[in-house]
Deep mutational scan, measured.
Amino acid sequence: YKELDVHLRRMESGFGFRILGGDEPGQPILIGAVIAMGSADRDGRLHPGDELVYVDGIPVAGKTHRYVIDLMHHAARNGQVNLTVRRK
């Protein structure tokens, strides 16, 4: 696995990616679609299928989808987010 730290600034449309997973206990949280011309797309480092490991330094492995969405909403209010993702 390769770990990447990604800092994104929120645009009008948000951070520019969707979150998948976390529906079953222990299921990984994954990056879903990366939205064209969004913040994540312009940054270029997030890829669909990347596993989300940390959101603003908070571990999200094994957490629920709702928990991660709530963290992302909090980050959106701050206008930026630091993510750590893991890729095979």
Results as ranks from 00 to 15, higher is better:
residue 1 Y to S: 05
residue 1 Y to G: 05
residue 1 Y to V: 06
residue 2 K to F: 12
residue 2 K to C: 08
residue 2 K to S: 08
residue 3 E to D: 11
residue 3 E to V: 13
residue 3 E to A: 06
residue 3 E to Q: 08
residue 3 E to M: 11
residue 4 L to Y: 12
residue 4 L to P: 00
residue 4 L to W: 07
residue 4 L to T: 05
residue 4 L to F: 15
residue 5 D to K: 13
residue 5 D to Y: 11
residue 5 D to M: 09
residue 5 D to Q: 12
residue 5 D to V: 11
residue 5 D to P: 05
residue 6 V to D: 03
residue 6 V to C: 05
residue 6 V to M: 03
residue 6 V to N: 03
residue 6 V to L: 07
residue 7 H to Y: 14
residue 7 H to V: 11
residue 7 H to P: 07
residue 7 H to R: 11
residue 7 H to G: 07
residue 8 L to T: 02
residue 8 L to G: 01
residue 8 L to A: 03
residue 8 L to N: 02
residue 8 L to Y: 02
residue 9 R to V: 14
residue 9 R to Q: 14
residue 9 R to L: 11
residue 10 R to A: 15
residue 11 M to T: 15
residue 11 M to L: 12
residue 11 M to F: 12
residue 11 M to V: 09
residue 11 M to K: 11
residue 11 M to H: 14
residue 12 E to P: 12
residue 12 E to K: 12
residue 12 E to N: 14
residue 13 S to F: 05
residue 13 S to V: 03
residue 13 S to A: 11
residue 13 S to N: 15
residue 14 G to C: 03
residue 14 G to F: 02
residue 14 G to L: 01
residue 14 G to K: 03
residue 15 F to R: 02
residue 15 F to V: 00
residue 16 G to I: 01
residue 16 G to R: 01
residue 16 G to P: 04
residue 16 G to W: 02
residue 17 F to M: 07
residue 17 F to K: 00
residue 17 F to V: 12
residue 17 F to R: 00
residue 18 R to V: 07
residue 18 R to E: 15
residue 18 R to P: 02
residue 19 I to H: 00
residue 19 I to S: 01
residue 19 I to M: 07
residue 19 I to L: 11
residue 19 I to P: 02
residue 20 L to C: 15
residue 20 L to R: 13
residue 20 L to I: 15
residue 21 G to W: 06
residue 21 G to S: 06
residue 21 G to P: 08
residue 21 G to D: 06
residue 21 G to M: 08
residue 21 G to H: 07
residue 22 G to K: 08
residue 22 G to F: 07
residue 22 G to L: 03
residue 22 G to P: 12
residue 22 G to D: 07
residue 22 G to R: 08
residue 23 D to K: 12
residue 23 D to C: 11
residue 23 D to N: 13
residue 23 D to A: 12
residue 23 D to G: 10
residue 24 E to Y: 13
residue 24 E to M: 09
residue 25 P to Y: 08
residue 25 P to M: 08
residue 25 P to F: 07
residue 25 P to L: 08
residue 26 G to C: 06
residue 26 G to F: 05
residue 26 G to Y: 06
residue 26 G to T: 06
residue 26 G to L: 04
residue 26 G to M: 05
residue 27 Q to A: 13
residue 27 Q to M: 10
residue 28 P to F: 01
residue 28 P to A: 08
residue 29 I to L: 11
residue 29 I to V: 10
residue 29 I to H: 14
residue 29 I to E: 03
residue 29 I to T: 06
residue 29 I to N: 06
residue 30 L to S: 12
residue 30 L to P: 00
residue 30 L to F: 14
residue 31 I to M: 03
residue 31 I to D: 02
residue 31 I to K: 01
residue 32 G to C: 06
residue 32 G to Y: 04
residue 32 G to S: 13
residue 33 A to R: 12
residue 33 A to M: 06
residue 33 A to W: 04
residue 34 V to M: 09
residue 34 V to R: 03
residue 34 V to H: 04
residue 34 V to Y: 02
residue 35 I to M: 12
residue 35 I to P: 11
residue 35 I to G: 09
residue 35 I to E: 15
residue 36 A to T: 10
residue 36 A to G: 08
residue 36 A to E: 13
residue 37 M to N: 15
residue 37 M to Y: 11
residue 37 M to S: 15
residue 37 M to R: 15
residue 38 G to T: 05
residue 38 G to L: 02
residue 38 G to F: 02
residue 38 G to I: 00
residue 38 G to R: 02
residue 38 G to C: 03
residue 39 S to V: 06
residue 39 S to K: 04
residue 39 S to Y: 03
residue 39 S to R: 03
residue 40 A to M: 04
residue 40 A to C: 05
residue 40 A to Y: 03
residue 40 A to T: 04
residue 40 A to E: 04
residue 41 D to F: 09
residue 42 R to D: 06
residue 42 R to M: 12
residue 43 D to K: 04
residue 43 D to Q: 05
residue 44 G to S: 06
residue 44 G to N: 06
residue 44 G to D: 05
residue 45 R to L: 05
residue 45 R to G: 08
residue 45 R to F: 05
residue 45 R to I: 07
residue 46 L to A: 01
residue 46 L to S: 01
residue 46 L to Y: 03
residue 46 L to I: 10
residue 46 L to P: 01
residue 46 L to R: 00
residue 47 H to P: 01
residue 47 H to W: 10
residue 47 H to M: 14
residue 47 H to T: 13
residue 47 H to K: 15
residue 47 H to L: 13
residue 47 H to N: 11
residue 48 P to D: 07
residue 48 P to H: 07
residue 48 P to R: 10
residue 49 G to T: 03
residue 49 G to D: 06
residue 49 G to F: 06
residue 50 D to K: 01
residue 50 D to Q: 04
residue 50 D to H: 00
residue 50 D to V: 00
residue 51 E to K: 04
residue 51 E to W: 04
residue 51 E to S: 03
residue 51 E to V: 06
residue 52 L to Q: 02
residue 52 L to M: 08
residue 52 L to E: 03
residue 53 V to M: 13
residue 53 V to I: 14
residue 53 V to T: 12
residue 53 V to F: 07
residue 53 V to G: 02
residue 53 V to E: 06
residue 53 V to Y: 07
residue 54 Y to A: 14
residue 54 Y to T: 14
residue 54 Y to M: 13
residue 54 Y to G: 13
residue 54 Y to D: 09
residue 55 V to G: 01
residue 55 V to F: 07
residue 55 V to Y: 02
residue 55 V to E: 01
residue 55 V to C: 06
residue 56 D to S: 03
residue 56 D to R: 00
residue 56 D to Y: 03
residue 57 G to E: 08
residue 57 G to W: 05
residue 57 G to K: 13
residue 57 G to A: 08
residue 57 G to D: 10
residue 57 G to I: 00
residue 57 G to M: 05
residue 57 G to V: 00
residue 58 I to S: 10
residue 58 I to A: 10
residue 58 I to M: 12
residue 59 P to Q: 13
residue 59 P to M: 14
residue 60 V to P: 01
residue 60 V to G: 00
residue 60 V to Y: 00
residue 61 A to R: 14
residue 61 A to Y: 11
residue 61 A to P: 05
residue 61 A to N: 09
residue 62 G to D: 09
residue 62 G to T: 05
residue 63 K to P: 00
residue 63 K to G: 07
residue 63 K to N: 08
residue 63 K to H: 11
residue 63 K to M: 10
residue 64 T to M: 10
residue 64 T to N: 11
residue 64 T to W: 03
residue 65 H to A: 12
residue 65 H to T: 11
residue 65 H to Q: 13
residue 66 R to D: 14
residue 66 R to M: 11
residue 66 R to P: 12
residue 66 R to K: 14
residue 66 R to S: 14
residue 67 Y to D: 13
residue 67 Y to I: 08
residue 67 Y to H: 11
residue 67 Y to C: 10
residue 68 V to G: 00
residue 68 V to K: 03
residue 69 I to A: 14
residue 69 I to G: 10
residue 69 I to P: 01
residue 69 I to Y: 09
residue 69 I to L: 14
residue 70 D to H: 10
residue 70 D to C: 08
residue 70 D to M: 10
residue 70 D to G: 12
residue 70 D to N: 13
residue 72 M to W: 01
residue 72 M to A: 00
residue 72 M to K: 02
residue 73 H to N: 13
residue 73 H to P: 00
residue 73 H to D: 15
residue 73 H to T: 11
residue 73 H to I: 09
residue 73 H to W: 07
residue 74 H to I: 15
residue 74 H to D: 13
residue 74 H to W: 09
residue 75 A to E: 04
residue 75 A to K: 06
residue 75 A to W: 04
residue 76 A to E: 15
residue 77 R to I: 13
residue 77 R to Q: 14
residue 78 N to C: 11
residue 78 N to M: 11
residue 78 N to K: 12
residue 79 G to N: 10
residue 79 G to F: 05
residue 79 G to Q: 08
residue 79 G to L: 05
residue 79 G to P: 02
residue 80 Q to S: 13
residue 80 Q to V: 12
residue 81 V to W: 01
residue 81 V to G: 02
residue 81 V to C: 05
residue 81 V to T: 05
residue 81 V to A: 03
residue 82 N to P: 00
residue 82 N to Q: 12
residue 82 N to A: 10
residue 82 N to Y: 09
residue 82 N to C: 10
residue 82 N to W: 12
residue 83 L to N: 02
residue 83 L to D: 02
residue 84 T to F: 05
residue 84 T to L: 07
residue 85 V to H: 03
residue 85 V to G: 01
residue 85 V to F: 02
residue 85 V to R: 00
residue 85 V to I: 13
residue 85 V to D: 02
residue 86 R to Q: 04
residue 86 R to K: 06
residue 88 K to G: 15
residue 88 K to P: 15
